[in-house]
Design a protein around this nucleic acid. Structure first.
Lengths: 187, 187
DNA sequence: TTTCTCATGTAACGCGTTACATGATTAC
DNA sequence: GTAATCATGTAACGCGTTACATGAGAAA
């Protein structure tokens, strides 16, 4: 789908500069992009070319001038069209699961360590997500439904990580039991 | 992490050609890659350059000759090292959640339709996953632990989609209730 | 004095995608 | 006759990443 619509979405809430957007996206726990300049500044140029946003340059003394982008009616239409595009199933990118598939020759103790590390990684992600979900979004006027949807998007992300933690704990435990069983039966 | 290690992983189970790998990866429900030629054939060239795999060309009459790749000891070492790399938290790419964040101006009825479509998309993915999880992997000799891990990787993917279905149903229902409440209070 | 924030942008590269190209054999 | 399967590969492009470049003012 590309980050462009997310940029457009934020601009639809409130006019913004590339710098603003960079911070917003980088700070967000649910937006997975690294929010690098290349993407954002090029994206804004593209949006401007398509006339989905208008641009106002505000001179400043000392620092570089700020380029403030505002959504246009055409931009609002494009955003609405995107929102109504047929949803696709999410794609899972869990590199660790791939590692597990070829862990045949790795000792169970090492596997346990890996699982612990995975638990930590997922746990701290979840912690940050929860903290951010409690803070309100920087959108000015949100109606009840929008607020509900905002919350549910966070809930979704949180539930996904919670499920992952449960899964890790289960595998950790059952792996230990498997080891014991094999230890007994092989002697 | 890149698809290269997955390719190496499959070769570690059994020597294979690019064509074999393409089919395996394209058919898999847990491997999210499209398995295009470019990636696979280039990947194999790279693996061969790194001497992680050896290559044997088998002439055939009629069809092009098959290039059969076999893992080397160095390849096994590299694979083991990759498997033991510190796990990273999974990244979620759920484009639909992004769409929801900017659904402010979309009518609730349209939103319901979108949710239904999302339910379908996730549901059919889940169906395929379940079907594939029941079939055994094409790996020759799997010990008990490896089989357990293989199953748990599928379980993880299945649980993620099941969670998503629950979430969709909840949102669908609560969205309907919100609409009713607002309908009442605004009259 | 060094680091952080503000503010813009570019270069090089990695990984992935679709589509194109070739050509024989087999199945409908 | 048309399509699918086997089998290799290339071209062009999209999206994303890290790192580089500049330069002022404020804070530690």
């Amino acid at each position: 789908m590309s980050i462009k619509y997310v940029i457009l979405g934020y601009i639809s809430w409130k006019p913004a500069t590339g710098y603003d957007l960079k911070r917003i996206i980088a700070d967000s726990e649910i937006l997975h992009w690294s929010a690098n300049n290349n993407q954002i500044y090029r994206g804004l140029v593209d949006l401007h070319k398509a006339e989905w946003v208008s641009k106002e340059v505000v001179q400043q003394d000392g620092s570089p001038s700020r380029h403030i982008y505002t959504i246009t009616p055409a931009g609002r239409e494009a955003l609405a069209a995107w929102v109504q595009e047929t949803p696709e199933a999410p794609q899972q990118r869990k590199a660790f699961l791939m590692q597990l598939l070829w862990a045949d020759d790795v000792k169970t103790a090492v596997l346990q360590t890996l699982l612990d590390q995975y638990l930590d990684a997922v746990g701290s992600k979840l912690f940050m997500l929860r903290a951010q979900a409690d803070r309100k979004p920087d959108q000015p006027d949100m109606n009840e439904r929008s607020q509900y949807l905002w919350n549910m998007v966070y809930r979704n992300a949180i539930a996904t990580y919670e499920m992952e933690l449960d899964w890790i704990r289960q595998v950790r435990q059952e792996l230990g039991e498997l080891g014991k069983k094999r230890g007994r039966s092989s002697r």
